[in-house]
Structure formats: structure tokens, C-alpha cells
């Protein structure tokens, strides 16, 4: 690990901003975000649609230029050493980034080789990951025939080929059925258990509550709450004088001023 000052930070952002020039003028998608994610934790990044979650992740993962501010990931400056950052991170974005014409095994082996593995090493690593994520039976089938859950697991596997120090997961369970969602949760816990820092964006508050050591809530491009789930709940309980701890949903709604609608099933979704 190459973490520099302040020692154990896996992700550090200061005044991070992204502005676009559109036809209607300048859009401020992210407006001065400060983040400090400690190495080894699962950090949840929550927010309603369009709040700036994915834009922030894309800046942190070198996929998008930074308009203002600075970001360091795994100890390296994202703007000045993007290739160094890319070697140390794994990325699974909202849209499972897969090539439907390759087989699962081919995709993983190619990804491993692009990270510098030899052909033999890449084949071994691909096999390990296929077993680990229970995709062995489908390994030599083309990805276009995979189910949504299988695609998500393969995407996760492809983000792990080089054993990254920091894993970015952008809404990894969106669109999955409850069983697949639980499988992904188990994987996230297992990956984190092996020392990988996980930076997770999600709209599912139960997911954040279950998985994350600390969370930040972003709204309209600004961080509006940050802390452990327990701290955030206790803060709202104190402020409102509640008899019992509120749920994370209530914390979220308080922070963003959104309305709530319950979605059928075991997971609650909050929409703007």
C-alpha cells in the first residue's frame, strides 16, 4: 500500500467540483465535496437521483475530469497520476461494463492481462474468480446469455482481477432481485474482510445500513450529512427529541427534504 499523509486514508477529496457547460448554461453537478474514507472501511455514498453520486465516483475513478478541488485515491493524486490510481482501484459502475460477445472467462482473462498478468497468470486468476463468484458453470458461455445477477457478479469479478486496494461500486444492486442483491452484499462483506476498502454508492438505505461503516449523503452536489449510521440516527433523534432511533430512511429524508414512497419487497427505495 502506498497511502501517504494522513496515513490511513484510502480516499480523500477536498473541494471536489464538476461543472458542465450545457445549452442552458453551466450545470454544477458536484459543488465542493469533501470526503475522507479510511482504509479498510465500507463507505456508503447516498443521494437521490441526480444528486452527484455517480459524477463524484467518475471523478474519483479517473473517468471524468475534475473542474475544481483535489482528490487522492490510494494515496495518489487522481489528476496527476491517473494511471497509478487505475492500477490500485477496481471499478464496477452502475451499468455492468461487460462485453456481451465474450465469454466470462475470456473477459476476466483479458482484464487480468491488461493489468499486466502473463497469459498463464491471467488464466489462473480468471478461474479463481469464476469459482469465487460461483460463475464456473457459465464461464465458457457468452455473456449476452447471462442473467442480471450473473452479469453483476461478473462485473464485480472483473473489478477484482488485480486485487485492488480500493473498490468503487456504483449502485451495484440496482435492478437485481432480492436473492441476487443478498449475494452481492455477501461478496462486498467478503471483499472488505480481506482488507479492500469499498466505496459504495446506493439508493437503497437498507443496503447502506447493512453494509457500511460510515456514510455520506449528497444532495444537489453537496454533502449534507456524514458519519456512521448510528451517529446519523442518534443526531436526528436528539434534534427531533424522538423516543426511539429513527431509521436511515428518516435520516435521508431529513437530510434531503425528499418525500418517501415504499416500494414493495424487502428493500425500501427513496426517490426524488
Amino acid at each position: 500500500m502506498v497511502y501517504e499523509e494522513p496515513g490511513t486514508l484510502a480516499v480523500q477529496a477536498s473541494g471536489l467540483a464538476k461543472h458542465y457547460r450545457g445549452r442552458a448554461g453551466t450545470v454544477e453537478a458536484v459543488r465542493g465535496v469533501d470526503l475522507r474514507v479510511t482504509a479498510g472501511e465500507v463507505f456508503g455514498f447516498l443521494g437521490p437521483n441526480g444528486a452527484g453520486k455517480s459524477t463524484t465516483v467518475r471523478m474519483l475513478t479517473t473517468l471524468m475530469t475534475i473542474t475544481a478541488g483535489t482528490a487522492r485515491v490510494a494515496g495518489l493524486d487522481v489528476a496527476h497520476d491517473p494511471d497509478g490510481v487505475r492500477r490500485r482501484i477496481g471499478v464496477a459502475l452502475q451499468e455492468a461494463g461487460l462485453d456481451p460477445r465474450q465469454t466470462g472467462r475470456e473477459l476476466l482473462a483479458l482484464q487480468a492481462r491488461l493489468f499486466g498478468s502473463t497469459r498463464a497468470e491471467a488464466a489462473t486468476r480468471a478461474q479463481e474468480l469464476l469459482v469465487l463468484l460461483e460463475l464456473e458453470d457459465a464461464a465458457d458461455r457468452r455473456i449476452k446469455g447471462y442473467s442480471g445477477g450473473m452479469k453483476r457478479r461478473l462485473d464485480l469479478a472483473s473489478a477484482l482481477v488485480h486485487e485492488p486496494e480500493v473498490l468503487f461500486l456504483d449502485e451495484p444492486t440496482t435492478g437485481l432481485d432480492p436473492a441476487s442483491r443478498l449475494t452481492v452484499w455477501d461478496e462486498v462483506r467478503r471483499i472488505n474482510g480481506r482488507g479492500t476498502t469499498v466505496f459504495l454508492t446506493t439508493q437503497y438505505l437498507e443496503e447502506a445500513d447493512q453494509l457500511c461503516d460510515r456514510i455520506a449523503i449528497i444532495d444537489a452536489g453537496r454533502i449534507v450529512r456524514q458519519g456512521t449510521p448510528a451517529e446519523l440516527k442518534a443526531g436526528l433523534r436528539e434534534r427531533r427529541g424522538l423516543a426511539v432511533d429513527p431509521t436511515l430512511d428518516e435520516v435521508f429524508l431529513d437530510a434531503t427534504g425528499r418525500t418517501r414512497e415504499r416500494v414493495a419487497g424487502e428493500v425500501q427505495e427513496v426517490t426524488a
Binding site: 487505475r86 471499478v91 459502475l93 452502475q94 461494463g97 491488461l114 493489468f115
Partner: peptide, 16 residues
């Protein structure tokens, strides 16, 4: 297709 499906971003996020 790669761009629309997200695979292009996967490659861009790699040290390629």
C-alpha cells in the same frame, strides 16, 4: 456498443 454498455468505461478505468 461498448460505450453504451459501459465496457468502454471499464477499459478506461484500467491502466491501459
Amino acid at each position: 456498443e461498448d460505450i453504451e454498455g459501459g465496457y468502454f468505461d471499464k477499459l478506461r478505468a484500467s491502466p491501459v
